[in-house]
Design a protein around this nucleic acid. Structure first.
Ligand code: MN
Ligand code: MN
Ligand code: ZN
Ligand code: ZN
Lengths: 128, 128
DNA sequence: AATGCTATTAATAATGATTATCGATACTGA
DNA sequence: TCAGTATCGATAATCATTATTAATAGCATT
């Protein structure tokens, strides 16, 4: 009962084709080249469906637009504080983080959120 | 030129008097007992001023209300996925996390966000 | 005390990302 | 074929937060 519509398929394809962690807005612009009549609501609806079915990840952020990632492999992100762009951290080398879940009486801690922040190459070039 | 208004002082006092990490809304209700005419905009404005002056911390969250903390000591938080409540992690014992900032060429990584998630005692009691 | 200056306020409107609604359309399977 | 329903595009609504604005209050100088 979960159809594979053109809109959903193209959306997933375009997200899988980029390493840029685009926002719903950016994805909307991209997808419009192939589906000129798609509406922004459809983009949001299908991104939500894809997240819920486990096909993509949502990288949300207070006070800004969420970004989406079709790379389901375990990896961490760094977010630029100036432009909001997200980049993958290479997990080669020193970054083998093992974060143990804390144990608190009667509190069931199931997971954590970890994200790095800084200034991306583009924005540090502008701030010369 | 930064006056210490009654509204600002009471707001800070009430936040310092609780361990509950209240939202702007909750703080608004609390403060109205002492300042019945305060407006929600004033609460937001002064919380923002207090954050910017380093007197309190803001714990924001995508798709929900931000919460505020007057405890400036270094400590971590756990957020309940059901009710949104935030609790402090006791930093005694095993939780001496040392997270090294990753080094990426031309990317200036300055800090990280780490937050745990789970189910608080109240919500796990309800889900019996 | 009177004047001028500016920070702040309460009330209210606006913003912006996301979600909900709805009538129309397109699949799907009996 | 045809009922049932998933999805669509368009558009309105939501909701936390921020901006605007006219009025007021604090402070300094005359
Ligand atoms: Mn990624
Ligand atoms: Mn705390
Ligand atoms: Zn940047
Ligand atoms: Zn809870």
């Amino acid at each position: 009962m979960q159809r594979i519509t053109e809109q959903r398929r193209v959306l997933l394809e375009e997200l899988q084709a980029t390493k840029r962690h685009p926002t719903a807005d950016e994805l909307y612009e991209t997808v419009r080249c192939r589906l000129p009549n798609i509406s922004l609501g459809t983009v949001y609806r299908n991104l939500d469906l894809l997240v819920r079915s486990g096909s993509i990840r949502k990288l949300d952020k207070a006070g800004g637009q969420a970004r989406y990632d079709a790379d389901l492999s375990e990896h961490l992100h760094v977010r630029c504080l100036h432009c909001g762009a997200i980049a993958d951290l290479p997990d080669d080398g020193a970054l083998k983080l093992e974060i143990p879940l804390p144990v608190i009486p009667s509190y069931a801690i199931t997971r954590y959120r970890l994200e790095f922040e800084g200034t991306c190459p583009g924005c540090s070039a502008g701030t010369t």
